[in-house]
Structure formats: C-alpha cells, structure tokens
Amino acid sequence: MKNIHKLAAIDIGSNAVRLLITSIRINKTDTIFKKISLVRVPLRLGEDVFSKGKISEKKLKKLQKTLKAFKILMQMHEVYMFKVVATSAMREAKNSTKIIEDIFKKLNIKIDLISGKKEALMIANVFLNNMENLTNNYLYVDVGGGSTELNLISKNKIVNTKSFKIGTVRTLNNITKDISWHNFKKWIENNSKLYKNIVVIGSGGNANKILKISKKNINEVISINELEEINSLVKSMSFKDRIFKLQLNADRADVIIPAINIYLNSLKYSKSKSFIVPRIGLADGVIRHIHLNNNEGQLLR
C-alpha cells in the first residue's frame, strides 16, 4: 500500500447510509488519518425492517442508487480501497441475503453484514487509538437507528461489550421490547458496579448534534444536568422548531429525542455524572480496520 492513499467506508445503517472518504499518510513514526468527505443519505431502512421484517422494493431501489452514487464519488476521489458494512436493519431483514447478492451482481460492491459485537468493537477501538494514557473508566454508548452498542473500557482496554436491540428508529415506531430495556439496564448496572467514576461516551449522529447544541468542544464534559436541560429543551420544541431553531435535519429532528433518552439512561444506570462526545463512529472504525487488515477491504475498480 502507498505511503499516501485514500480509503473509504460505507455504513448501511437503520436510519441512514454514510460514505466516509479518508486520506491516510504514513511516515516513519506515525500514521495520519484525515477526513476528506462525509456524505449521508437518510434512507431509514429500519422503518421497513422493524415493522414488516424486510426491506421494501422502494427502499431497495433507493439503496442501489445511493451505492451507485457513492461508487462514482469514490472513483472521483481516486479511492484505493473501500469496505461496505451493514448493521441492525440489514441483520434483521428476511431478504438481506438476496439484497446483498443482487447489489454485488449489479454494482460489484460487497456488503459485509457485521454482528453487533463486531460493530461495537470497531467503534471503541477508534477511540482507544485516538486517545493516549486514559485514566478514567468509560462506558462507550453508540446509538443507532436499530441498535445500541455498549463497550466498557478500563485501563486502556475493552473489558466487555454488548449490543442491544434498542435504537432510535425502533423506538419511534414503538417496537422496542420491554425485555430489551430490562437487559440493557441490568447489563450496565452489573458491569459498571466494579468501576468508579465512569465517563459515558456518546457516539453516533445524535451525539454529535447534542455536542453542537451544548456548545461544548469535542471531548469536553457535558454534565448529566446539562444533558437533562438539553433533553427538556428539545422535547419542549415542536418538530418544526427543532428544524429551524436547532438547525436539525428533518430525519434528525425526531430521532434525537429517543437518542438523548438512551444516553441519559446509560448515565443513570452506570451512576455517571459525565458525558463526552469524541465525534467518531462506525465509518471511522471501518477505515481503521481496513488500514490494518488490507485483505478485508475491496479494491476500487
């Protein structure tokens, strides 16, 4: 692989499909990752899957058009290698195998259907690689449209990880099961009781919007009281006001409320008072993964 090259990651999520293009610069002492382009298309595949069990023909056509456009963008940026991953919605769709096969035949794009555990580890490893000499204990909470991935981190190591079928799109459609919330609560309580002064890390598009609303810097602490104030502010606003006053996209203005609720519950169950947002997500994890494991990336042709 060249000392300077471009890698790309496509994350097919339950709420949106994202393309991240990153420049990788390698010298004798360091590797520098620089984001070049991030494109997001709000397909909401989870709306179909979580209510009907499969992805509709209409959504499939949109997905194919999105991936075709992303491939052109990667070619224009002269991307060397890329990887496409699909998460909760595709994991649960009854027709996912056929969709993956059809997209490969039509577009020559391979889709890796990753497990919730692999998703969680990919995300947390980016944080660990970006931070040095971590002194706190952390609960990494990545909230997606269909699932929430948890990683407990102590002494620079991931000590436990778990994925739950609790997500923003799933919650909006009132199909998150009570047992999922119960297991979520118990997992956090049981795994965090051995660790003191836990800091909750928020990951995902909603966490980034919370950071913007808070007017804090990346990795600057947002207290649980401040997060509760943000929650009250957002819930007090109409859908229209969230779009115009908070400058949220229409597909973000509804899901941000269940997302904040998940983050707040994570803080309460872990007895944490501090919340930080590093502005990293699954696509970043995929970029780092194919950088370290070339055999798992797909050459762009």
Score class of each variant (00 low, 15 high):
I72M: 15
I243R: 04
K98H: 05
G46K: 05
H291K: 13
K34C: 11
T22K: 02
L121G: 02
V85P: 14
K245S: 09
K273T: 08
M76E: 15
R279K: 11
G46I: 10
A89K: 05
K212A: 09
K268G: 05
A69H: 11
N129D: 13
H289D: 14
Y269I: 09
W187H: 00
Y140N: 13
R18F: 02
I26A: 10
G13R: 00
I99W: 03
I36E: 12
F50A: 13
L45C: 00
D254F: 04
K98P: 03
L73S: 11
N219V: 09
A259S: 06
T135G: 07
E296T: 06
I166A: 06
I99R: 04
G116P: 12
G285T: 11
T135Q: 14
I198L: 00
E47V: 15
G281N: 01
F184G: 00
R91P: 11
V79F: 03
R288G: 10
S163D: 11
K165G: 03
K68I: 06
K54F: 09
G53N: 10
D11V: 07
K58G: 03
I224V: 13
I179T: 08
E189V: 14
I114Q: 02
K240V: 12
N136Q: 13
V199T: 09
H182Q: 15
D30I: 12
A69N: 15
N231S: 14
I109E: 08
V221Y: 10
F33R: 05
T22E: 05
N225C: 08
K105S: 08
I290C: 08
K98G: 01
I153C: 01
I111S: 10
S88M: 14
L134T: 06
Y269A: 06
S115K: 02
K157Y: 01
I198C: 01
D30Y: 12
L60M: 13
Q298K: 03
L233C: 03
K235G: 04
A250C: 11
G167L: 14
I158A: 01
S23F: 11
S163I: 05
Y263P: 08
